[in-house]
Design a protein around this nucleic acid. Structure first.
Length: 238
DNA sequence: AAAGTTGTCAACCGCGAATCT
DNA sequence: GAGATTCGCGGTTGACAACTT
């Protein structure tokens, strides 16, 4: 059948956006809201394709964007999340208010990768570089985790159980990160969501309940929700 | 000062998923 | 149910800036 082009390429601008184009896009979205990107350029009087408008808005013009340097806390959070999620930049961005997936991806490739390498850590696996050779032996590959229904459990919770090597069929590849709490659980719909405490220390917010640096008192593994990943990662996987 | 190299980041491209007809 | 359309994501590119020789 063939794929139709995302937009009419013949009469669209490409490359850097001008101030006027930005203003038009902002004004249009303020008046009409986001969405329907395909028809937006025409309606807004822009000679751009919808994709380009969407990207420009999301990555640069959105009013809630936090510009400026990443903080050390954000750095560490990105590293932790990357070790858990891999290159799922949009998911990682969802955990960093005001940051975009593109921004985090760029920051990872230009700063964090180098930072990890200088620490002797492989940015792809989050393991020490000198362990790579021995650990990449046939059996020792990326750890992947999938879900299964815990039939023994009386409330029939889905548990983070099986560890596979195959990332297909409902499981995702997840890198080893021993200090992260990966005992994520999901509750059946009728169960009320455990409210995330606002008073978690930074370590706990990363799932490091047993960290020596933990300064908060909410430390119960049972109800812990790592940055909402308990639900959002599961959502992603489903 | 000029040329070459490296780093940064906005923007593009292609693909798969989701949604619509 | 099948095909068409739209959206969103991740990888990559290229222009520009900063730095080095």
């Amino acid at each position: 059948m063939g794929r139709s082009p995302c937009c009419e390429k013949a009469h669209t601008n490409k490359g850097a956006w001008t101030k006027e184009e930005d203003d038009r896009l902002i004004a249009y979205i303020r008046a009409h809201g986001e969405g329907c990107w395909r028809s937006l350029p025409k309606s807004a009087g822009l000679l751009r394709c919808g994709k380009s408008c969407r990207l420009r808005w999301i990555n640069y013009l959105r009013p809630d964007l936090k510009r400026g340097n990443f903080t050390p806390q954000e750095d560490e959070l990105i590293i932790k999340l990357h070790s858990l999620l891999g290159n799922k930049w949009s998911l990682i961005a969802g955990r960093l208010a005001g940051r975009t997936d593109n921004e985090i991806k760029n920051y990872w490739n230009t700063h964090i990768r180098r930072k990890l390498l200088s620490r002797g850590i492989d940015p792809a696996t989050h393991r020490p570089l000198n362990q790579e050779q021995s650990e990449l032996a046939p059996a020792a590959t990326t750890t992947t985790i999938s879900f299964k229904q815990d039939e023994d459990h009386e409330d029939n919770k889905t548990v983070f159980g099986e560890i596979n090597k195959d990332s297909k069929g409902g499981s995702i590849s997840i890198e080893r990160c021993p200090d992260l709490n990966l005992e994520l659980t999901i509750s059946p719909p009728h169960q009320p969501m455990i409210k995330k405490s606002s008073s978690l220390c930074f370590d706990c917010s990363l799932g490091l309940q047993n960290s020596k640096d933990c300064t908060c008192e909410i430390n119960t593994a049972a109800g812990y929700d790592f940055m909402d990943l308990k639900t959002s990662v599961l959502d992603y996987r489903s």
